[in-house]
């Protein structure tokens, strides 16, 4: 129970996010109208994705630096990348639903849409690389190197280039996404808990994946033993 307090916190925060996010007052803005509530669901997806990719990159670095068990750091890196991609897809799809109502159609080739699509492509390439190397040790090392390189290549794509070109995202210019609710602080009490809740959920899902994989590996070893 003591070690699981953050899972309970995540559930509490997300229940609060869904209830308060859908029911509480939000600022009335033209065009955005009620879709402004997407802030509580769409934006945290990206925050969580970036967090998970960062953790994945850190484990890859640990793997290359030979900290801890090699098999464990490799498993952690790939699992966090998996969940990160899942959150990225949710971010894209939730954004497309939102765009359908505010911009008029789901896909506009907005710099941020392109950046996020490309970063997902990068991580899909990471999985392809893992699938095409047979030797376990070599796969772990090559994919760790690619993971770090890919993350570095992704940084300008989602943090720098979208800020240099005009984007149709609300609050563009300066810090994307933050200007929007600077207009009105009624959204902060829901937005921050939402971000933390979704991030905890991402880590939680990943930890379940890791445990599942560890059990599978154990079972395989067990079967090989006979």
């Amino acid at each position: 129970m003591k070690r699981n307090w953050w899972k309970i916190l995540s559930v509490v925060l997300l229940v609060y996010t869904v209830l308060a996010g859908l029911l509480w007052d939000v600022p009335r803005l033209s065009i955005l109208n009620e879709t402004i509530r997407a802030l509580y669901f769409h934006v945290p997806m990206w925050f969580t994705m970036v967090l998970l990719f960062v953790i994945s990159g850190v484990y890859s670095a640990l793997h290359l630096g030979r900290w801890g068990s090699a098999a464990k750091t490799d498993l952690f890196a790939v699992s966090f990348a998996h969940t990160g991609v899942a959150f990225g897809l949710l971010g894209i799809f939730s954004g497309m639903i939102w765009a359908n109502y505010t911009w008029g159609s789901p896909w506009h080739g907005d710099p941020k849409q392109i950046g996020s699509a490309v970063s997902l492509l990068i991580y899909l390439a990471y999985f392809v690389l893992r699938a095409s190397v047979d030797n376990d040790e070599q796969r772990a090392r090559l994919s760790a190197a690619y993971n770090i390189f890919a993350f570095v290549a992704m940084v300008p794509l989602i943090f720098i280039i979208p800020r240099m070109t005009s984007s149709m995202h609300p609050g563009n210019g300066g810090n994307p996404g933050f200007n929007m609710y600077d207009l009105d602080s009624t959204m902060r009490p829901v937005f921050y808990p939402a971000v933390i809740g979704w991030m905890l959920l991402g880590v939680w899902i990943t930890s379940l994946r890791i445990r599942l994989r560890q059990i599978e590996n154990k079972l395989e070893e067990y079967e090989d033993g006979f």
Binding site: S119, I122, A125, F149
Partner: peptide
Amino acid sequence: GIASRSGNSHVVMSVLSLPVVIG
């Protein structure tokens, strides 16, 4: 360097480099 150490290197080469250089 990465692709040369995998199976079908040429496919992996383009798959790996394309997304990284799009920016």
